[in-house]
């Protein structure tokens, strides 16, 4: 196996909110071109972990390196697709402007969007196959189409790591398959971290899986042990791990 650079490294990371532990002793390395799925129950700290990588949250303890730098400085190489529910569907803005907004972090002073910004927005919309909708108001699109636009917004910064927070929420199943097709296409260009509470769908496409419920269970492979899953979901979950056709989780002896 060829050597791949580490893009994100977390060592002994803890996060506390008002005395409640949200993340406990997290150790994680993400390598170039990894496609990592992080699964775990709601409230298990999945979004918190992404925010730590993005530098939006300071860990109470531990070390975070993003592209060999602090998260604040490393995040210029990181594209982020936040959880769907966070935005106002009636907001008066076109798809084109949403995608261009992704360039704001790279702009200096009070300049206008440059030709290069517009070219990158065009390319990003073409990648997610949403060029035909660039003049539409964002709220007029379906859940899956909106998700594509937010992926395009993350792509305009030409990221080397893409963080996706529950990208399949509010996306119907045919569209989910298409979105996974898009991730297949993108994974050759960047590392992808996909966070979800839905174990079965994620496990088909990703090449590595971690379980997160305050603690992270991760063996740098796609195999998760029944013990890990039980510890994560805190109830027996054998039924999802065994005997179902097309599941990639291995049968445990």
């Amino acid at each position: 196996m060829q050597y791949r650079r580490t893009v994100v490294k977390l060592e002994d990371v803890w996060v506390h909110f008002d005395g409640v532990t949200a993340l406990e002793e997290i150790n994680l390395s993400i390598n170039q071109r990894d496609f990592l799925g992080i699964i775990g129950p709601n409230g298990g700290g999945k979004t918190t972990l992404l925010k730590v990588i993005l530098g939006l949250l300071k860990p109470s303890r531990g070390k975070v390196r993003v592209f060999g730098d602090t998260p604040e400085r490393g995040r210029k190489f990181v594209g982020y697709v936040p959880q769907y529910s966070l935005f106002d569907r009636d907001f008066p803005v076109s798809v084109w402007d949403v995608v261009l907004m992704g360039r704001l972090g790279r702009m200096k002073g009070f300049k206008r969007y440059s030709e290069e910004d517009e070219k990158l927005a065009y390319e990003a919309l073409r990648t997610v196959e949403m060029l035909d909708f660039s003049a539409s108001q964002i709220g007029k699109l379906s859940g899956g189409q909106q998700q594509r636009v937010f992926i395009a917004r993350a792509l305009v910064t030409e990221p080397r790591l893409l963080l996706l927070d529950e990208p399949m929420a509010s996306v119907d199943s045919p569209m989910q398959t298409e979105l996974y097709g898009l991730f297949e296409k993108l994974r050759h260009r960047m590392a992808i971290v996909l966070v979800s509470h839905d174990i079965s769908a994620v496990s088909i496409y990703v090449d590595k899986i971690a379980c997160l419920n305050r603690r992270l269970f991760y063996h740098n492979t796609k195999e998760i042990t029944a013990e890990d899953l039980e510890a994560t979901y805190q109830c027996p979950v054998e039924i999802i791990a065994h005997g179902v056709p097309h599941r990639v989780l291995k049968v445990h002896k």
Binding site: L56, Y80, M101, R153
Partner: peptide, 8 residues
Amino acid sequence: EYAKAMGL
């Protein structure tokens, strides 16, 4: 939140 993640 996204604006903050972009470094604004």
